[in-house]
């Protein structure tokens, strides 16, 4: 299998002098194409920091992050923006859609940034909406959609740019149990059908139950890296 993400000796510290906290300490791991991986651990364990570093949202103090073979740790702001746009899909906990744009426009937005022509954008938007089961709801604004539907739009937006990997931070945290399960099952299906790589940062047992692999983080160190049989 192709390695999508590889981290080497990642170190990230916050604060200065006596108040300095080591969020990640020499974290080295790799994620293969098509994996459905969950980074788990208690609050403050460093899972958020690891997800940010993998996504190019933060820079490590030392170490490297390779995404599809490209080291993103030393990229400039503009290079990182372009790289995130073309290679990484993000799903955040909540409120991650642009409220003044409709569901269709939210999905279209990222393709607009990529410079995809209008006809292709419109076609792909409809494909994505169908994929996440929201046909006919494309003209609704986020405030007119339920929490679960909003997260489905977020998944559709993340996938619209055809990224190498989707990073999801607590995507079910603000959803009720039934909606959360439905969303996860949908993502698991997309993972299975399209071989899309998903990496979650989560406390949610429902995600852990569906993951192929669990990376246990504690005090910024990987304590356990287990392959699950589902």
């Amino acid at each position: 299998m192709k390695t999508v993400i590889e981290t080497k000796n990642l170190v990230r510290k916050f604060g200065e002098a006596q108040t300095q906290v080591t969020a990640l300490s020499n974290v080295s791991t790799h994620i293969e194409e098509g994996e459905f991986t969950a980074i788990i651990g208690p609050s403050g364990s460093g899972k958020t920091t690891l997800l940010q570093l993998i996504g190019g949202l933060d820079e490590p103090d030392s170490g490297d992050v390779f995404l599809s073979g490209t080291n993103i740790a030393n990229m400039s702001g503009k290079q990182l923006s372009d790289f995130r746009r073309d290679h990484i899909g993000f799903i955040f906990q909540s409120y991650n859609l642009i409220p003044v744009l409709s569901a269709e426009e939210n999905i279209e937005y990222i393709m607009l940034l990529q410079g995809v022509d209008e006809k292709d954008r419109k076609t792909r938007v409809q494909e994505m909406l169908a994929l996440v089961g929201l046909e006919g709801l494309g003209d609704r604004r986020p405030s007119q959609l339920s929490g679960g539907q909003q997260q489905r739009v977020a998944v559709a937006r993340a996938m619209a740019s055809k990224p190498d990997i989707i990073l999801a931070d607590e995507p079910t945290a603000n959803l009720d149990s039934t909606t959360g399960i439905a969303l996860l099952d949908m993502m698991r299906e997309l993972n299975a059908q399209m071989n899309m790589t998903f990496v979650f940062s989560t406390h949610d047992q429902k995600i852990m139950d569906r993951a192929d692999r669990l990376i246990h983080l504690e005090d910024g160190v990987i304590q356990l890296d287990e392959i699950c049989s589902s």
């Binding site: 996504g55 923006s81 993000f90 955040f92 940034l113």
Partner: peptide, 10 residues
């Protein structure tokens, strides 16, 4: 923050 995360340039 979200817009920049998904690739909107400065």
């Amino acid at each position: 923050g979200v817009a920049k995360a998904i690739g909107t340039t400065p």
